[in-house]
């Protein structure tokens, strides 16, 4: 097999897994843009969402019933978080809100395990983590079916959200709130509704991300740490930029795979773990607002 095809294979694999980082990061960005809350609990929500989904299936619900039930549950969790944790803290400093979401993360993780147990589950979406045959025949590249499906689902999700934001009244309201809270308040956009919508959406995004990750690497507590991979993605993409984190997710996915395969052997491996953070630190030094993020301006 020529080297070129092998490089491409690694790159594609990286990009595909990158879409999932982007999806997790997207949940953060939505909430951060609309309410300046850094939602530390996003990882916990991912875990809770997919664990609940698998739990409902174990209770005997078929896939197509478990999905809407879990979507409903995540909407409730998102809205409840906004209503009972964040709204009482409105006008507090960003640090206070961050602390609240750290606490919330532990609560959600605890509740998830209490309700559904601590065992590692398998999530079978009926798609194998196996190479697509015709790609292999044509080019010799090994491209996983599961990765491609995950990327497609993530892509559809992002496109749907983009349409929601650009073409609906609430979407316009949401962008207005993200741009300028005070101005939105002054013309009577109901911030509370917008915040609830954002949290509910973040809950659903968490479910989709959790299902894709869970199908790949099992439904387990370690999913919480996937959220930590979202941190470098956020730094690189910029906390306030949806296109930024999508691109950054792809970059992080590609860099870690390429680093692992081509540079790893020379330095003894393990690059996959730390290369995204290296890149993030570089960005912090050179371009702290991220790829497309706005310059950080404290609003009064």
């Amino acid at each position: 097999m020529p080297d070129f095809w092998f490089f491409l294979e690694v790159l594609v694999g990286g990009l595909l897994s990158g879409t999932m980082y982007a999806l997790v990061a997207l949940g953060f960005v939505l909430i951060y843009k609309a309410s300046s809350v850094f939602n530390f609990a996003q990882g916990a929500m991912v875990f809770f969402a997919v664990l609940s989904f698998v739990g409902f299936m174990e209770l005997g619900l078929p896939f197509w019933a478990a999905l809407p039930v879990t979507v409903g549950l995540m909407i409730l969790v998102g809205m409840g978080t906004e209503r009972f944790v964040l709204r009482p803290l409105v006008n507090q400093s960003e640090d206070t809100l961050l602390m609240a979401t750290i606490g919330l993360a532990f609560v959600i993780e605890g509740v998830a395990q209490l309700a559904w147990g601590v065992d590692v589950r398998r999530l079978d979406l009926g798609i194998r983590d196996e190479p697509i045959n015709w790609v292999m025949d044509k080019t010799g590249m090994l491209v996983s079916q599961l990765d491609v499906t995950a990327a497609l689902v993530a892509g559809i999700m992002v496109a749907a959200l983009a349409l929601l934001f650009s073409h609906t009244k609430v979407g316009r309201g949401l962008r207005a709130v993200a741009d300028d809270h005070a101005a939105a308040l002054s013309i009577g956009i109901p911030l509370k509704h917008i915040w609830m919508l954002v949290w509910a959406t973040a809950g659903v995004v968490a479910l989709v991300a959790g299902m894709l990750w869970g199908a790949r690497s099992g439904v387990q507590f370690a999913l919480v740490w996937v959220a930590l991979k979202a941190l470098p993605v956020l730094i690189i993409g910029g906390f306030t930029s949806v296109p930024g984190v999508i691109l950054a997710g792809l970059i992080v996915g590609a860099i870690e795979k390429i680093g692992e395969v081509f540079i790893g052997p020379y330095v003894g491996g393990g690059i996959e773990g730390w290369s995204p953070y290296m890149l993030a630190v570089l960005f912090l030094l050179i371009r702290p607002e991220g790829l497309f993020g706005e310059k950080i301006i404290r609003r009064v």
Binding site: R172, R175, A176, A178, D179, D180, A182, A183, A184
Partner: peptide
């Protein structure tokens, strides 16, 4: 200070 929504 006007406070327009800059990205709209």
């Amino acid at each position: 200070g006007r406070h327009c929504f800059g990205h709209l």
